[in-house]
Amino acid sequence: MIEIFGVPLPSLMGQLTLGLVNGSFYAVLSLGLAVIFGMLHIINFCHGACYMLGALFTWMAMEYFGLGYWWALLLVPLSVAAIGIVLERLLLQRLYKLDYLYALLLTFGIALMIEGGFRYLFGATGKPYSIPDELTGALDLGFMFLPKYRAWVIGASLTVCLFTWYMIEKTRLGAYLRAATENPKLTQAFGINVPVMVMLTYGFGVGLAGLAGVLAAPTTQVSPLMGSNMIILVFAVVVIGGMGSILGSVITGLGLGVVEGLTKVFYPEASAVIVFVIMAIVLWLRPAGLFGKGA
């Protein structure tokens, strides 16, 4: 059997794809954070809770309504986005004129309430969610077996990230978004309804978190606590990538997933902290992050 640095190739590739899967979640989540930060200038602390809602709604759709994975993939991100829009209209929009710390505290409080509420309802134990029939099994690539669901998560996440990047950088709507990010008042004075764009941007950002939750449901135990575990890592990813850069957050997310996966192979003891070690080094050498613009 082929070995690389004493590790059998299939197990190395296995960890690599697992790393890419985790990296895909980091990428989609930090992309949502970056989009929200760019437009609203707030750090969305309830992003992890929205990710959890995505996974839990997926499980609930199956449990209570008999709606399978593909329906969940369509409906759950939309309902998480709708919840985000309601939060923005009712609460967040009242804080834009104040220091950003208020929005941070508000979203943190919302995250605690959502998690606490669902923990009360469902308990903290994880609930299994099975992989849809179409995506069970593995592809034989010759040098390794690639589970179909892992391939799907990576492919779907990359497509979503690419789509988001294209929308923002190459379309007219994206030009509105970039303009409103740079100079919201003037953009509104040109006749563009900036408050509605801000609302939809927030909905889109948390909808992405919901989508990541749907994709994650079959890969993990669905539990009300899965968001808070994830979000700490994602914030580290955002710090490493630099706040507000679309492409940067995607590349950093995927890259760190891979680094984490490889650490599990070569030095498992460090795999839980490697992302934070990298964060410390990046903060030391490049405080604005790898893709950040200035400090």
């Binding site: 007219r172 030009a175 970039r178 303009a179 990010t181 740079e182 040109f190």
Partner: peptide, 12 residues
């Protein structure tokens, strides 16, 4: 963050 032409085409 916009090119010259995107600036020109921005206002609806």
């Amino acid at each position: 963050s916009l090119t010259c032409e995107e600036n020109l085409m921005l206002p609806p």
